[in-house]
């Protein structure tokens, strides 16, 4: 368990992942589920980036020609997370437009009420 305190960044990251997961499960409003999804993604990216961080080393930008690997942190997770952040923005934008389309039609964002509405609308007809 002492390892948990040494890798505390990863522990925090996965706690964020679980908080996002719980928000996704327990909130009915679609916007809140989206916030939960974003927190989940941020948690995974924090987990990945903190894997690359090495204490006492500097950002991976070459300074005055010093190419020794001991000076810089691991650049690979940083490049992966840069790709990931843009993925989560585009997914958020698509889900927001979906929820707007839903809201225009059913005037609520609570998926259970929407199902009831979809069925009740059919009974009216």
């Amino acid at each position: 368990m002492e390892n948990l305190f040494r890798n505390y960044e990863e522990a925090v990251a996965l706690i964020l992942f679980s908080i996002g997961f719980m928000t996704l499960l327990f909130h009915k409003n679609l916007l809140r589920k989206l916030i939960g999804m974003n927190i989940m993604d941020s948690g995974v990216y924090l987990f990945l980036a903190s894997m690359g961080y090495i204490y006492g080393r500097r950002a991976p930008i070459v300074e005055n020609g010093d190419l020794s690997a001991e000076r810089y942190i691991n650049p690979v997770p940083a490049s992966l997370v840069l790709t990931g952040i843009v993925v989560s923005v585009s997914v958020t934008a698509v889900m927001l437009s979906l929820s707007i389309r839903l809201y225009e039609r059913y005037h609520t964002l609570d998926l259970d009420v929407i199902y009831a509405a979809a069925r009740s609308r059919r009974e009216h007809r």
């Binding site: 679609l30 698509v94 979906l98 059913y106 998926l111 929407i114």
Partner: peptide, 10 residues
């Protein structure tokens, strides 16, 4: 389709 897509995406 918007309702089906929301469920699919989540």
């Amino acid at each position: 389709t918007a309702l089906a897509a929301t469920r699919y995406m989540v």
